[in-house]
Computed example of a mutant assay.
Amino acid sequence: MLKPLLLSILLLSASACAEETQRALPMPQQDVPASDANQTAVFAGGCFWGMQGVFQHVRGVKFVTAGYSGGAASTARYNVVEWGNTGHAEAVRITYDPHQVSYGTLLRVFFSVMDPTELNRQGPDEGPQYRSEVFAADPAQARVASAYIAQLTATRVFSRPIATRVSSLSGFYPAEDYHQDYLIKHPDAPYIVVNDQPKIEKLRALYPAVYSARAITMARR
């Protein structure tokens, strides 16, 4: 059981992070055209447990993999990435049906459930491995993501500058098996209750048309 003082610190940190994103965001003015095949998106927004858990509840998403992006294949291991000097960020790769959910909608959810104004951290987690970053798979994704950040900045949706970066995807490396579906497997873990369950509730409350009560787990692939 989490000690009361530590639980209070986690709750305050989660509350502070949530202050920036309590309202629905506007849809991106640009979007990636739909193709006949499934598409992928790679986002980093803090601990991948919560990011995976959120997008597993988005309609049109086929599966979500927790992993590492931004560094080399040789350092894509949790016990190395956690030191914060590999270039990797904890990230998720989202495979989705573009005829059911668009890349722009995924971006909208992403910027709603984490705090894009925090630099090299999210909530209680600090270090560049917890940064927020959009890893664009192609120029179209990069253009749409950059335009959305500019749109949110111009409309002053957030009270502080957006720190989220947009970069080209150079590789994605799935995390160890014990990280996959972590939120689903450990829904009562104190970290999950304080930091990640509220993200899923925010998705449900802000975007009910996008929210799916049934999570798409890695086991159902």
Rank of each mutant, 00 (worst) to 15 (best):
I184Q: 15
W49H: 02
D115V: 13
H186K: 11
S74M: 04
G70Q: 08
C17Y: 03
A189H: 15
W49L: 01
M218V: 14
L25C: 08
Y148L: 04
L169S: 10
A215N: 01
T117V: 06
Y96E: 05
V64D: 00
L107K: 08
A76N: 01
S102K: 02
F55S: 08
T65W: 06
Y78A: 04
A213Y: 10
S159N: 11
V166E: 00
A137C: 06
P139D: 15
G60L: 05
V134M: 04
Q141L: 06
A89K: 01
A37D: 10
K185C: 03
K202H: 00
Y178K: 11
L5G: 00
L107A: 06
R121S: 10
A44R: 03
I9C: 11
V32M: 05
D97M: 07
A44C: 01
I200C: 00
R93N: 01
A175G: 14
P190T: 05
R214M: 04
L2Q: 11
G67R: 09
N120Q: 12
S132F: 05
A24E: 11
Q180W: 07
L119W: 03
T40H: 11
W83C: 02
V81Y: 11
A73T: 06
A72F: 11
Y130T: 04
M27P: 01
R165G: 01
Y207T: 05
D188L: 10
R160K: 14
L25I: 07
L2M: 15
Y191E: 04
D177M: 08
I9Y: 13
F135R: 09
S168M: 13
R59D: 01
N79Q: 13
A76P: 04
D31S: 00
V166F: 07
I184Y: 15
N79E: 13
L6E: 14
E82R: 15
H57D: 03
P208W: 12
Q100R: 14
L25E: 06
H179A: 03
R156I: 02
E118D: 08
G87D: 12
R143T: 14
D177P: 09
A142L: 08
L107S: 09
Q30N: 08
P208H: 12
E118M: 14
Q141F: 10
V54Y: 09
W83A: 09
R143F: 09
Y130R: 11
M218H: 13
L206P: 04
A18R: 15
T21K: 04
G123F: 13
G70F: 09
F111H: 07
E126W: 13
S74I: 09
Y68C: 03
Y78T: 02
M114N: 12
I216F: 00
P174R: 10
F43W: 07
Y68Q: 05
A213F: 06
V54N: 00
I192H: 05
L2R: 13
A145Q: 09
H88M: 11
R165H: 03
A41F: 12
N120S: 08
V194L: 08
D188Y: 10
E201P: 00
L119M: 04
A76Q: 03
V64P: 02
P26D: 04
A18P: 08
T86D: 00
E176D: 12
Q129F: 02
R204D: 01
D138E: 09
V61T: 10
D196Y: 13
